[in-house]
């Protein structure tokens, strides 16, 4: 996932320059919107530009839902995704639906609790049972999104871990700060494990 390092924002010589496109996709109620908002806010905190948009159906819960975050050092004109650099999929349907939009060298993170049949030939991926971790470790399924965000930031360095932590604290109510922060931290650990294994290879 070297292509996602912080420096790639500077170096990428191709048009659209300086542009990183992240798609967080799943089902309504999984907290993908909050994850995207925290990510976009964190990017702003680091002096970058970010846009966050969403697509969803008329249902308030349960329908397919997608959150798009574009991060750039320059002005962002087109605020939605053209080709996904980094895909976080929290359901089988979301993964299947978004894969055709993934850049060839793009990376995928998915929740292995809901994605039972990852497409054969998938490259550059990290599979973590986010939902299971949230339930077993935190007794709260709602923080699966933060475990996933931790993994996303942990392996991509699109923003620093410190920045995302600070941003998270300012984005959730005090009662929920601790559990969300711990969930995020747990996501970092998953990322570290992945990065260490990659190192060994």
């Amino acid at each position: 996932m070297e292509n996602l390092s912080k420096d790639s924002l500077k170096k990428n010589p191709e048009f659209p320059k300086d542009r990183l496109e992240i798609c967080i996709s799943g089902s309504g109620g999984q907290g993908i919107l909050l994850a995207g908002i925290v990510l976009a806010k964190a990017a702003l905190r680091e002096g970058k530009n970010a846009t966050q948009t969403q697509s969803y159906g008329p249902e308030s819960r349960g329908g397919a839902s997608r959150c798009e975050v574009v991060i750039s050092r320059g002005e962002i004109d087109y605020p939605k995704i053209m080709k996904i650099d980094l895909l976080l999929a929290l359901t089988q349907e979301a993964l299947q639906k978004q894969l055709p939009n993934l850049r060839q060298d793009g990376s995928t993170i998915y929740d292995s609790v809901f994605v039972k049949e990852p497409p054969p030939g998938l490259k550059n991926f990290l599979a973590v049972p986010f939902t299971q971790i949230a339930i077993e470790k935190f007794q709260n399924v709602l923080v699966a999104n933060m475990v996933a965000l931790g993994a996303l930031v942990g392996i991509s360095h699109v923003v620093s871990r410190e920045t995302v932590k600070t941003t998270l604290l300012s984005s959730v109510r005090q009662n929920f700060q601790e559990i969300n922060l711990k969930a995020l931290q747990r996501g970092f650990e998953e990322a570290d494990r992945y990065l260490a294994e990659k190192e060994k290879k």
Binding site: I37, A40, L44, N49, A50, T51, Q52, T53, Q54, I76, P79, K80
Partner: peptide, 9 residues
Amino acid sequence: EIIAHMREK
């Protein structure tokens, strides 16, 4: 809808 729902700086 895009401008109304979009978040940006």
